[in-house]
Each structure stands twice: as structure tokens, then as C-alpha cells.
Amino acid sequence: MQKLGTSHCDYCRLAMPASETIWCQKCIALIPKVPRCRQCGLQTEHETEVCGECLTHPPQWDRLFCVSDYTEPLREYVGRLKYAQHFWLAQDLGVLLSKQISDPAPLILPVPLHWKRFWWRSYNQSDHLGWTLAQQFNLNGMASRCDNKILKRIKATRPQQGLSRSFRQTNLLGAFKVAKPITEKHVAIVDDVVTTGATIDLLCVELRKAGVERIDVYTICRTGKSKEQDATSC
């Protein structure tokens, strides 16, 4: 759907024609496009289905789809979505993300917030991203639904930002559960940013226990070390 009332790009502030998002095509073109491993989503030297690290230490999910890294101009808008209560930005960011996904899952599951954090923030940005993705897929004739009642965060934890990978995993132990039966064998987990993947991994474990066979990850930004950086730091 075109935003007919949009006359200026939200990023560069220059006039632009009607667009699906609040950004002009020139600013969207500024978003870095780099080769990635299609499973873990981290940068690789060449685009590949499965990188060497995933062959030996695969993540709990099967495929990751993202827009780009956590860099400008995405960094500003993801930050506003998550921390400044600009929840409406999920619509525009979700449109960008939907264009990266050719085979959408019939069931989209937002990463849940604990009720205390939800009460403090008043919304879950992953819910809004999930609803936007389902809407976009359905508009394109690909049946998909978003359900934010299936995955539950049952333990309040420290924010993951700034924690090491090992501490992130320990921090989240026992934090999630599947609260409703799942009939779909193919699902997707949606979140705004994936860094170490510790949160997604633990959600995947619970989903596998519930009988899910294929798990995709939908995220605006996939950040973290590239495979080349990992190799040189070992």
C-alpha cells in the first residue's frame, strides 16, 4: 500500500513521490547489503546457504531473514521503535523486512516481553512487527497469521544489551514457555534485533519440544561478529 500523504522523506527530508514507507528510494538504497550465511544471518565473504560455523555449531533455527546490520539509517529507527515509544515505525520497518522473505511461515511468533517490562514500556515492538509482516504477506496472497499469545516470558531477566554471550544464555534460562498448542510445523520468530541469538535459541528449544519442525527468524537487524572476525579472534 502506498502512503499517498507522504511528501517528504523522514530521513533526508527531501521531497519524494508516494511510497510504501516514510523513506525515499535513495535513502533505502543507503542500507548496506552484504553477503550472509542464510542460516545464522551473519556476514560472510560470499553469500552461502550454510557457513562453516553453522556446519559444526548450527543455531537452533533453520533460516534467518534480515534487512541489514544495526547501522545507520536503520539504527536510528530501530532505536526509536524500541526505546522512544514510536511503535508506528514497525509498519515501515516491517514493510522493508517483508521484502526479504519469499516463503513466509504460516505462523509468526513475536519474541515476548515479561509482563513487568510490558507494563513499563506499554507495548512490545515485536508484536507490531509481527502484525505488519502478516498483513503484508496476506496482501500478497500468502496466508500468514501473527499470534502473540503462544510464546510467554515467565521469568523477569536483566536486559540482554551489553551482556556477554555466555551471560546472555545463563540470564535467560527458564525464562520462556509455549503457552498454547501449535498445529503449524513451520513458524517464524520475529524480533527487532538479533545479536548473539541467545534469546532466539532458547525459544527454538521450546518450540521444538512443541513439535515445530522448521523455524525461521525474521529481524530488522542482524548484528554481531562476521565469520571472518570470529575466525581471527579464536
Rank of each mutant, 00 (worst) to 15 (best):
M16N: 05
L55Y: 07
A179M: 00
V67S: 05
T44D: 14
G52A: 08
C51H: 03
L96F: 12
L163G: 13
I31C: 05
T56H: 10
R214Q: 14
V78C: 06
I154M: 09
W119I: 08
R222E: 03
T44H: 09
A175H: 04
Q2E: 13
P35E: 12
A143T: 14
L89V: 08
F118R: 13
E20C: 09
V78F: 02
Q39I: 15
A143S: 14
C9A: 02
R80G: 08
Y77G: 11
I215A: 05
A84G: 07
T232V: 05
W131N: 10
D201S: 13
V95R: 10
T71W: 02
H8C: 08
F176I: 06
I108L: 14
G197D: 04
F118A: 07
H8W: 03
V193L: 15
R36W: 04
I31W: 00
L173N: 10
N148Y: 01
D147T: 03
C27M: 04
K3D: 07
K155A: 11
L129N: 12
F167Y: 15
Y123K: 05
C66H: 12
H128P: 00
A18H: 01
H114N: 12
I101H: 07
I215E: 07
A188Q: 06
I200H: 03
M16F: 05
D69M: 11
Q169R: 14
F118T: 13
T48W: 05
V193Y: 15
L173C: 07
R80A: 14
N124A: 02
Y218G: 02
V95C: 07
R36A: 02
R165T: 11
R214K: 15
Q43C: 02
A188E: 06
G211T: 13
S68K: 01
L109V: 09
W131A: 11
A29F: 00
T6M: 13
E72D: 05
D92E: 15
W119E: 10
S164R: 14
I220H: 10
V34M: 06
A175Y: 02
A188G: 09
A18L: 02
F137G: 14
I28M: 04
N171S: 06
Q160R: 12
